[in-house]
């Protein structure tokens, strides 16, 4: 389905292959709005077939980065090349070869689902006939056949999101930019979307995804960068980041709101690191159950205790001292 002048990596490689030309290459990329620096000198290289994530809280600079890559926002400073082309001079060609799902749906509210796809294909200069065939195929792909002739206004949030994804695929893009594809969706709608994105990845499309959901990044991304305050604070595969920065498991204990910090002296030596949140303590250890046994041995009785696997959320907490959401 997706043809490209690049060797498609087809998701087999977890690390960039050096002899493949990157689809996206950013060096010291900067975006400023007046005096405010939204993206502060990031370096990124994304290879064909890869699913690459930008993970970070609101205001980290993810959308600003995506808009520069999408050639709808001029680069303030640094180098950016996409398909080995320059966005400032070859924006039209670059945009023609990629699909974009913006953070907020930009569907044509005056048109139906099918018309949205049709006219969007026409903007790419695809013949009317090919647009029609492709639109039907994509509407099927996102499971909206029964909504084909409904105005997009009447759709639910999840359905609109699926139309956005279908529309972004009308030109068989080599590169797909997805800005928070599942924010605001209920769990079921998220899983449908994840499944579609996974299928697209199987077909070889390069994907760039921003998210502030850890589970989403872990599900969808081969490799990701953690962004905070316009800068990249960590880079790696989801599992690699976890093993590099924190322990495999977390013991979450609660002693009641505001009373967690007082317990620290008593917990000295338990786990490899302890993170204090207002409502709970996070004790990182390769064996969470062992840490819990140690608590019992010391006769420390929390209101609740829970052992779980560490996630990217924990990595983010360690790197920035803050939680991702809120």
């Amino acid at each position: 389905m997706l043809e490209s002048g690049y060797v498609a990596c087809r998701g087999l490689c977890d690390t960039p292959v050096m002899d493949v030309r990157p689809v996206i290459m950013a060096r010291s990329l900067v975006k400023r709005f007046g005096d405010f620096t939204a993206v502060n000198g990031i370096d990124v290289e994304i290879v064909p077939g890869e699913a690459f994530g930008f993970l970070g809280p609101n205001g980290a600079g993810k959308t600003s980065t995506m808009r520069m890559i999408g050639c709808v926002s001029p680069v303030t400073d640094g180098d950016l090349r996409i398909f080995d082309l320059d966005p400032s001079t070859d924006g039209r060609e670059i945009r023609g070869r990629m699909g974009v799902v913006p953070q907020l749906d930009q569907l044509d509210t005056e048109l139906t689902v099918a018309e949205n796809l049709l006219i969007y294909g026409r903007y790419f200069d695809i013949s009317r006939r090919d647009c029609r065939a492709k639109a039907d195929e994509l509407i099927e792909f996102v499971q909206l056949a029964e909504k084909r002739d409904s105005k997009v206004d009447s759709l639910s949030g999840g359905q609109k999101r699926r139309v956005s994804i279908a529309r972004s695929l009308i030109n068989d893009p080599e590169l797909l930019l997805l800005d928070e594809p599942t924010t605001g969706l209920d769990p079921q709608a998220r899983h449908v979307l994840w499944d579609r994105l996974y299928q697209l990845k199987e077909r070889g499309a390069t994907q760039v995804i921003t998210t502030h959901f850890m589970d989403e990044a872990e599900q969808l991304c081969d490799r990701l960068v953690v962004m905070d305050g316009g800068e990249i604070v960590a880079e790696g595969s989801p599992q690699g980041l976890i093993t590099e920065h924190i322990r495999r498991e977390v013991l979450e204990v609660r002693f009641g709101y505001g009373r967690n910090e007082q317990q620290l002296p008593a917990l000295d030596g338990v786990g490899s690191r302890i993170e204090v949140l207002p409502d709970r303590l996070l004790i990182y250890d390769d064996d969470g159950d062992a840490a819990l046994s140690e608590l019992h041995r010391r006769e420390i009785v929390p209101e609740s205790a829970l052992v779980r696997r560490s996630s990217l959320e924990d990595v983010f907490l360690k790197l920035t001292g803050r939680t991702l959401i809120e």
Binding site: V72, R92, P102, L104, Q106, Y123, F124
Partner: peptide, 14 residues
């Protein structure tokens, strides 16, 4: 309000 032009400018249209 409708973001129509933003969507169009994300394609090869100028």
């Amino acid at each position: 309000h409708s973001k129509l032009y933003e969507a169009v400018l994300a394609t090869p249209m100028s």
